Simulated assay, not measured.
Amino acid sequence: MAINLSKGQKVDLTKTNPGLSTVLVGLGWDTNKYDGGGDFDLDVSVFCANGAGKVDNPKNFVYFNNPQNENASVAHTGDNRTGVGDGDDEQIRVELTNVPAGIEKIAFAITIYEADQRKQNFGQVANSYVRILNEATGAELIRFDLGEDFSVETGVVVGELYRHGGEWKFNAIGNGYRNGLEGLTRDYGLQ
């Protein structure tokens, strides 16, 4: 049975699931219909960061145009450009046992593509979530529903996997960014 998290809550992943080697991180959302005229295109980005929270190799910034990190242990399974339908809109596959030692945090973010031009923000997005599945069994281990706390933000860091004492844990973050992907990449040390 999955553990449902609240914002700021941290939970063990590998310690409570011995033998867990590969997970799928599923992210989903619904867009509210409004009369702005533009289609929504939300994207998942992944920042494979060092202990200081910085991405020290551009190859470790995973998104639709760079679908895997430096050794393919973190891989984006494909860009969903409409978000239509039930279930996960985008997924990231993480081989926990193969993540390079220098990567201590794997942060997952959702951003709205061309948000400023289309006059869109997370106040128009509902039912956002992140969940972690055991790839081998398909069992949902962790789930974090973001809620409706956003208004003008165009990007959200939903959560992160991080190493602690030789084990992987998950942190439910849920922090919004007004300046979307640009602000996120800057904060994670990318230009």
Results as ranks from 00 to 15, higher is better:
153 E>Y: 01
161 L>Q: 04
103 I>W: 01
78 G>K: 07
187 D>V: 11
34 Y>R: 03
52 A>W: 13
39 D>W: 00
113 Y>Q: 15
179 N>Y: 11
79 D>V: 13
130 V>S: 15
14 T>I: 06
12 D>G: 00
172 A>G: 02
165 G>P: 05
134 N>P: 10
116 D>E: 06
52 A>M: 09
25 V>Y: 03
101 A>R: 14
129 Y>H: 14
51 G>I: 12
178 R>L: 14
110 I>D: 05
166 G>F: 04
67 P>M: 12
117 Q>C: 03
42 L>C: 11
157 V>G: 06
160 E>S: 12
190 L>S: 13
99 V>R: 00
8 G>R: 06
171 N>C: 06
90 E>C: 07
160 E>M: 12
48 C>S: 10
33 K>Y: 00
4 N>M: 13
118 R>N: 13
76 H>P: 10
75 A>W: 13
137 T>S: 15
181 L>S: 07
163 R>N: 07
120 Q>C: 03
15 K>D: 02
167 E>D: 14
100 P>E: 05
62 V>G: 01
36 G>P: 02
77 T>C: 09
145 D>P: 09
48 C>H: 06
174 G>P: 03
88 D>R: 09
122 F>E: 03
96 L>V: 05
59 K>C: 08
161 L>G: 02
98 N>L: 14
103 I>Y: 02
101 A>Y: 04
28 G>P: 08
135 E>F: 02
68 Q>W: 11
87 G>L: 00
105 K>A: 12
165 G>V: 07
176 G>A: 11
168 W>T: 00
17 N>L: 03
38 G>K: 10
75 A>S: 15
171 N>L: 09
121 N>S: 13
87 G>M: 04
57 N>M: 03
120 Q>A: 04
191 Q>I: 15
10 K>Q: 10
134 N>R: 01
51 G>C: 10
69 N>W: 07
53 G>M: 02
184 L>Q: 09
3 I>S: 15
97 T>R: 14
138 G>W: 04
5 L>H: 04
7 K>H: 11
155 G>M: 10
92 I>C: 11
137 T>E: 09
57 N>T: 09
122 F>R: 07
166 G>S: 02
24 L>Q: 03
158 V>T: 13
121 N>D: 07
58 P>L: 14
52 A>D: 11
99 V>I: 11
115 A>Q: 01
39 D>H: 01
62 V>T: 08
141 L>D: 02
134 N>W: 00
165 G>E: 08
38 G>H: 08
173 I>D: 05
110 I>F: 07
154 T>V: 10
153 E>R: 09
99 V>F: 00
89 D>Q: 12
84 V>A: 15
105 K>F: 10
184 L>G: 07
124 Q>N: 03
31 T>P: 02
172 A>Y: 01
10 K>S: 10
176 G>I: 06
97 T>W: 13
93 R>T: 15
31 T>K: 08
9 Q>T: 11
75 A>D: 15
55 V>E: 06
118 R>A: 13
190 L>K: 12
47 F>W: 01
52 A>G: 14
76 H>V: 14
131 R>M: 12
91 Q>M: 15
112 I>E: 01
30 D>T: 12
34 Y>M: 02
